[in-house]
Design a protein around this nucleic acid. Structure first.
Lengths: 250, 250
DNA sequence: AAGACAAAAAATGAATGCAAAATAGCTCCA
DNA sequence: TGGAGCTATTTTGCATTCATTTTTTGTCTT
């Protein structure tokens, strides 16, 4: 068997027992969609690898119909590619694709900041401040993992403060697309960039406190632009060195 | 028959003859997707109306499998809703939904402007200038339809100048979602707003000439924000007056 | 022995079939 | 006469089946 998929599969619903989780998710195909999306996003399938439907069906314990529906949706989301008569592959992101994705993310966060300034409460800002100082602590301790976790929380808080569900959903979609590279692009050794990022975050917080929408928008865009450069650089190095974007646990 | 769909249906492929169009689009489901998307976007199905699968199948001359795949994709795109066990409905956009969508569009155009400033050529700017003056002509002649057509071309040119296919696709997606309301939201009577819009467009062009990215970003956002207000106002009036968003030809 | 052709096997795309859920239609009762 | 409850029809969700297309494998030719 030349399977490209590691055998991590667990059937979706223990064949006929009540589904243990309280997730009221109806419809098999919806469940399949969630499962498959996570499965792809988390990098369980090698990029560009062909993914036989049958195998996924066996893995998920379903028939091809709902699976194919889910695949179509994932393709529309940009996570996978569907080649006519030749099956599905995990979409391979070129450097250009990544640049584009980062830029769109930058635009979305920039927008989020702008909108957030309109209605954000003092409490929300205070919460972000707390996250900021927590992140600063991780920075001082050189705790990369903790830093990144809080960093994401800050950005998500800003998106949440924009009070725009459509934006939030779109943001989450794009975040999912680049999640795998994001992991590997933690500019691990770029100490200098790290310091820069901290300063940028201070500027973000400052602009947010003053509700300076336009300014915050600029800062966020530039911040993400810099992140993009760091990620692309890191990735390019990694590729040159032959390092694959290996999936790594959360 | 209580059909909600007007009988405009033409089978996708003249049953067994070679497909007349040179559109090499393979795969029935892809064709169905395009057809159905247009069909929905153009407002052929009343909002919120239930749409039996069978009827769409008959209309398109296909079986339910590819149709359902297309429906799932359209749902993921936000054009329709899929209620479990209760079929598909054309998504009804609340006023809040529209506000959110307009804001996201504003963010995307704002981003497009910012990016465009980085690489746009003098020729591209000249082309936009030509469009601008053409639009100005329509403005002077109070030719609403022509004005709007060129207006869209200008905005699309800016998005194109951003040189970001991902952005372009995303933009197109959102544009499709609000297309039906856009038509009806031509702030038809708002002469004052029209003049404002023209002035904003001049500012856009000015910033673009100077490649003033940040400034252009602000102007575009504000421009779209104003458009949003006009659209929402108009729509609210229309609803009060009981005017439905009736589809109108291109 | 290498490449080309052909047949077999497998995978995809779409249609059909079947069970469960929802809607409608109808009867019966207050 | 109006409404609650039950039955019948329709509709949805998923599995299965069938027809093409692709891929693989084996053989033959040069």
């Amino acid at each position: 068997m030349k399977s490209a998929i590691p055998e991590t599969g667990v059937p979706i619903t223990p064949p006929a027992a009540g589904n243990g989780g309280d997730r009221q998710e109806t419809s098999l195909h919806g469940e399949v969609l969630l499962r498959l999306r996570d499965y792809v996003v988390e990098g369980n399938i090698p990029e560009g690898a062909r993914v036989p439907e049958r195998q996924l069906c066996d893995m998920l314990g379903i028939s091809r119909t709902p699976l194919r529906e889910a695949l179509k949706v994932l393709a529309a989301e940009g996570l996978i590619e569907l080649l006519p008569n030749r099956g599905a592959r995990v979409r391979q992101l070129s450097q250009r694709d990544l640049e584009e994705l980062f830029d769109v993310m930058a635009g979305l966060e920039s927008l989020a900041g702008r909108l957030a300034c309109e209605l954000i409460t003092d409490e929300e800002i205070a919460a972000i401040e707390r996250l900021h100082y927590e992140m600063y602590g991780h920075y001082l301790h050189r705790d990369m993992h903790g830093y990144f976790r809080i960093n994401q929380q800050i950005h998500e808080s800003i998106v949440a403060a924009a009070r725009n569900e459509t934006l939030k959903t779109t943001y989450a979609n794009f975040a999912g697309r680049i999640r795998r590279v994001r992991y590997s692009a933690n500019f691990a050794r770029k100490r200098q960039r790290w310091g820069e990022a901290m300063r940028e975050h201070e500027a973000i917080l400052d602009a947010l406190r003053r509700r300076a929408a336009s300014e915050l928008s600029d800062i966020l865009f530039q911040h993400l632009r810099n992140k993009r450069s760091a990620a692309i650089d890191h990735l390019a190095e990694g590729q040159d060195a032959g390092l694959e974007t290996k999936p790594q646990g959360d």
